[in-house]
Design a protein around this nucleic acid. Structure first.
Lengths: 330, 330
DNA sequence: TTGTAAGCGTTATCAG
DNA sequence: CTGATAACGCTTACAA
């Protein structure tokens, strides 16, 4: 089923078919022939070959998205946000998960597939050597870089808001659970947290700053360490919700009441935050919004339009008070 | 950067470049020229254009995957399983989420992009009219169909295993929480459950069978209904883990102890099942395995190889006893 | 208004 | 062993 077949069926040339079907604005086609072509196409169930189109237009109308870990709900939300706006704009979405195959490798493959751009989330710029991204439209999610365009959430604000919330509840022995990751977002969450505490005149014993992987089991292990300090912190900020979930679990296992004995606040507001008991107090980071914005940014760039509005300020984050934080009782 | 440029640089013809780079087995190329070409390609940072290749080979080496709901962790696991094996085989993966755009629409778009096949998960066959799938390699996940190839889990066994587990714990007043969905999997889970109970001589009051959407909030609402019956069931099987999580939440809110007052078992074994407290007893359905198997099935089909081993029997499911079930106490 | 023809970057079939 | 050359299905000047 090619344009030729349709042309034959309609008794016109292949290029006329293309003219009609591609909706080219500067194509003046007689109403009669247009009808005939449309009819023929419908009858034959014609589906244009987008590879061929891409080849001649040097544009595939597809974009790639590579994430560091597809099983992390935060990233699946980013993907889903991006997919939504891409699909809306009739763009294809090629997916890459960087757990098995390095992000750089994915990016190169996507480039070979001639994607018009790629969104990269959860991957540091250092994992993307220059040669992998030359001649490619990249946008980074939550990894600000002077050189590449990107969209980001206000990570430092996340840390600050967590700190203020706990401070306002009267807590002063405050712990932090997070990865020793080079990821900008994690670093800034931690920095915002530390700065807000310092500003409030709160000292941070090093035992209260525990490094662990940014996963549920990491959070679980980390919280166990925190629980073994003496005196214990009465409030804990976790670098993401997965860690917080693990922390909650460790508390439950140790018979430590949340928020009775210890308050915990997460970060991201993944869907699960609402589904655990007690419900997790957390800092909402608009994952889906980040994905959507990244896609929009890419599409605007491809259209050569102004991207100022999207690239300007970071997406705001917001404290969501649920059930894992309470006024300090002791 | 095209093959021509490389050819020029190496002082050979473009077709020679293609011959050495495509790794065509029946291409006999002099060691010297091969070296020269490889060198030139490396030097210029040549990346072949897969659109062009796809056009001539009539094969894109990409496959599509469309899921009913990207935010459902079960489906993201399916996607991640499929992505893994596809990427391993150097296939691209095009993603489609059927929440905003109907599955059939996605499938057609993927066909236009010349994917070599598409995996469809969480979507009934009826949502895919004949004309959308003609000339397309489809494989369905968990939606057995006489006509299309697919991979499935043993859904009836899931229901049976849940029933037996609860029965063995001495429960006799047993409730079910699930969607009134046409989805084959849900129907079979329910059927397996009902049959096992009947077989055990257990009667099922209609009030114990509550229909609700297959989501957390659905489970929450459903469990509230179940809790308002008198006498209450002492054990409940939920059609999936999301529903079970909602059920747990409803119990917590109503002050009903799990598993003290009521036992609940979920289905799927999503990652979160381990992260809630108490940890969810559930039936493990190998989502990632389903995705992986679907992809493998597709790849084998495309290679014209035998698929018997994969299409034969359903993937087994398995009871995973955690903390939400206990011996009946009253 | 419509048809002709020249590519887009590959692969693949032949001659040489 | 290597190089012309003809597709692949489409878009897009340019001609008619």
């Amino acid at each position: 089923m090619t344009g030729h077949d349709v042309a034959a069926h309609a008794g016109v040339s292949q290029s006329t078919v293309s003219l009609v079907l591609s909706g080219n604005p500067r194509a003046r086609i007689g109403e009669a022939t247009r009808e005939r072509v449309l009819e023929a196409a419908r009858e034959l169930g014609y589906r244009p070959n987008l590879l061929a189109r891409g080849l001649v237009q040097r544009r595939s109308f597809a974009l790639g998205i590579v994430v560091s870990d597809l099983d992390n709900p935060f990233f699946t939300e980013v993907v889903s946000g991006a997919e939504r706006v891409a699909a809306e704009a009739d763009y294809g979405v090629l997916l890459g998960d960087a757990r098995e195959i390095p992000a750089a490798e994915h990016v190169m493959r996507l480039a070979e597939r001639q994607v018009d751009g790629v969104i990269v989330a959860g991957v540091g710029l250092d994992a993307l050597p220059d040669e992998t991204r030359e001649g490619l439209n990249l946008v980074l999610v939550d990894e600000p870089s002077g050189v590449l365009p990107g969209v980001a959430s206000d990570a430092a604000a996340a840390g600050r808001k967590a700190a203020r919330h706990l401070l306002e509840l009267g807590h002063t022995r405050l712990g932090f659970l997070g990865p020793a990751s080079p990821a900008h977002t994690f670093r800034m969450r931690e920095r915002g947290w530390v700065q807000a505490l310092r500003q409030a005149g709160c000292t941070i014993p090093s035992a209260y700053l525990v490094r662990t992987s940014a996963t549920v089991s990491g959070g679980q292990a980390g919280m166990r360490r925190l629980l073994s300090t003496d005196p214990r912190p009465t409030g804990v900020f976790c670098a993401n919700d997965l860690v917080a979930l693990g922390a909650l679990k460790a508390c439950a296992q140790a018979g430590v009441k949340v928020p009775g004995h210890i308050s915990v606040v997460g970060c991201d507001d993944i869907e699960m935050a609402r589904y655990v008991t007690p419900e997790l107090t957390t800092i909402l980071v608009p994952a889906r919004g980040l994905g959507a914005r990244a896609a929009r940014l890419l599409l605007l760039t491809l259209d050569g339009r102004d991207t100022g509005a999207l690239t300007g300020k970071a997406l705001g984050v917001e404290l969501v008070v649920r059930e894992t934080t309470a006024r300090r009782s002791i």
